[in-house]
Amino acid sequence: MSGPLLEIRGLAVVFPTRGGLVRAVDGVDLEVFSGECLGVVGESGSGKSVTFLAVLGLLRPPGRIEAGEIRFEGRTISGLPEAELRELRGRAIAITLQDALTALNPALTVEQQIVETIEAHDPDLPRGRARRRILRERAQELLRLVGIPEPARRLAAYPHELSGGMRQRVMIAIALSCRPKLLIADEPTTALDVTIQAQVLDLLAELRERLGTAIVLVSHDLGVVAEHCGRVVVMYAGQVVERGPTAAVIGEPRHPYTRGLLRSIPSIAEPERPIRPIPGQMADPIRPPPGCRFEPRCSLARPACRLPIALRPIDGGRAARCVEVAA
C-alpha cells in the first residue's frame, strides 16, 4: 500500500484562555488513505472539528498548533506560510463547514459562489466572453453532479431561496469545484432532517466512488458513520480513544467510551432496550485527568486507569486507549 494521503502525527492544538491553556487536541495520530471514507466520531468538544481546521491552517487566533506534524501526500503542510496553505485549500483539500445554512453568502447567487472558487484556483481560464461561458458551464455541471435539478435556473438563485438539503448540496458542489483529493465533510447532516440526511450521505458515497475523492466524515452520529465509512476514529477529550475498521469497532467496541456511545443510540430492532446515556461531563480541557481521560465517567475504572496511557494496537488494524486492552 502506498503512503497515506493525509497523515497527522502527534497533533496538539491549544487555545489560550483566561482560565488557562485549553488543550482542544492532544496528541492525535490519524491517517486518511486515497479514495477511502474515514469516519471521525466524538461528542461536542472532543476536538474532531478542530483537528481538521488545524490541517487547513484555519485555526482562529489565539488557537495554534503546539506540536505535531501534518503531512499531505508526503509533504509536511503544518507550519506552511499562509499563501502556500491558501493554494492547498479548496484545490487539494476542501472542507464543508458544519452549517450549510450560514456557510453560504446571503448576498451572492449560487453561481457567483461556485465561480468564485474556480476562479481563485484556476489560472488557465481564458479572458473575456469565453471565460464567463466556461465558468457558467462548469457551475452547471457541478450542480448536476450533486443532483440539483434544473441547474441553469438554480444558478441564479440566492441561498435563502433554497431548501436546507439543496444548500448542503450547493456547499458540496462548491467544495468539489476544484476537484480536491480530500473532502472533509464536517457534520454535513446536522441541520438536515432524516430523509435529506440519507440523500446527502448517499451523494457523498457516490461522489467518492465516481471521483475517487477521499472523504473524512466528521460526525457526532455513530450511525451515520457506521453506514458509510470503511474505517472509523473515535475521539474523546482531544484524543483518539479507538480506531479501526468500522464493522469491527461497532461490532466489538474495545473502549468503554465507544461502548457508551453505542448504548446511547436508540435501536428500532430492540425497542425495549433502555437508552443508557454516558453519565458525567466531558473532561475539563484545561486540567484533564492525568491518566485515561474517560476514567472519571467510566464504570470500569480502576486505579491503573489514573496512569497515562497510549493507544494500544489490537489485531486487525485496530487500536484502543484502554488498560483493558493487553499492552
Partner: peptide
Amino acid sequence: MRAEAVEEGALARPAEAPA
C-alpha cells in the same frame, strides 16, 4: 482534473421540493 471530466447528470436524483 476538471469538472468537464464528469459525466453529465450521472448522479442526478430526484431532489427535495423545488424552490
